[in-house]
Simulated scan of single mutants.
Amino acid sequence: MIQENEPEAIRRVAGAGESSRASRGWWDDNADDYQREHGGFLGDQQFVWGPEGLEEADARLLGPAGALRGRAVLEIGAGAAQCSRWLAAQGARPVALDLSHRQLQHALRLGGAASAAGNGMPVPPAVPLVEADAAALPFADGSFDLACSAYGALPFTAEPVRVLRETRRVLRPGGRFVFSVTHPVRWAFPDEPGPEGLTATSSYFDRTPYVEQDAHGRAVYVEHHRTLGDRVRDVVAAGFRLTDLVEPEWPPGNRQEWGGWSPLRGRLLPGTAVFVCHRDDD
């Protein structure tokens, strides 16, 4: 029998509304622990694409050095807005959007801490924060030059094409959207960092969502699986042109374990997929 406070992990259908409610509740409840556990790795104003530690400062997936200055950038699923603060430090004009009120409270905290640091480093301007669902962006058409999302929104939505279309809508013609998600191949393996996570136990082609539900059957966490082909088709169906797909390799100096990501698995299996998409002129 399931204990009242212990969620049951299963695979079952979860629609858009249930997924959105679960994500908002889970991140509000777990934001403190998440920032405590991963804040050091993410930094206060760094742009990290995933657990491998690929940084935008090196990858330049949003554009070459200097190209960000003056650009309006939307970060979707921003969490504590670490990426947005890095963008602001490059001279961009970011807006950080997240579904979770508690995550955005951490964004306010970290933004204030950066301003009060007094360590001689340039202090980026305050980043506007918006609490909203990525499937219904509260911005006018063509509001942004660029958009980005590092493990934000897309892994947790039942309607990825709707999120992608909304993102395309708020981009200006010629705009770029770069997003990272769990590499789809990982869904065939247990979410374990050790040797037990190296044996495939599920079908890669099973798109049934992963759901954690309470004793009353209410979803408290939902994550949606899309195959690599699904992700590409979603991008195209939303009207984007896919120009690059980056699969970061695990670097030798990264010793951390983050859920199912680890040096052991990272040497053998891809953990993150980064999609670089463009909105062509209409």
Rank of each mutant, 00 (worst) to 15 (best):
L110K: 11
S149G: 14
E37V: 09
W86S: 00
E56P: 09
G229N: 11
A96H: 05
Q256Y: 03
P190E: 02
G77K: 13
F139H: 11
V211L: 04
N119G: 14
D98G: 05
R241D: 12
V181Y: 07
G17W: 01
R102E: 13
D214S: 10
F144D: 04
R21A: 15
A215G: 02
G266K: 05
F189W: 10
G142S: 14
R255M: 01
C277S: 14
A117T: 05
R71L: 12
R168I: 02
R233M: 12
A22R: 14
D281N: 13
V181G: 09
D33H: 09
R207N: 05
D141A: 15
A81G: 02
P94K: 06
S115E: 15
H101C: 04
E131G: 08
G79P: 06
T208K: 07
L110E: 07
R11F: 12
C148M: 15
V211D: 03
P160S: 08
S180L: 04
R218N: 12
F139S: 05
V222Q: 06
V181S: 10
G15K: 07
A80Y: 09
F139A: 07
Q35K: 00
A16W: 00
E6I: 14
R36N: 10
D234R: 02
V185R: 07
P209L: 05
G39N: 04
R172E: 11
A22E: 01
D32G: 07
G112L: 01
D145G: 10
G118E: 04
F139I: 10
R109G: 01
A135H: 12
S19C: 02
D282W: 09
V236C: 03
A134V: 09
A158L: 04
R255V: 06
P263I: 03
V163Q: 10
Q45R: 13
A80Q: 05
L242N: 06
P124I: 00
P173A: 11
E257V: 15
D191Q: 03
G253D: 15
A158R: 14
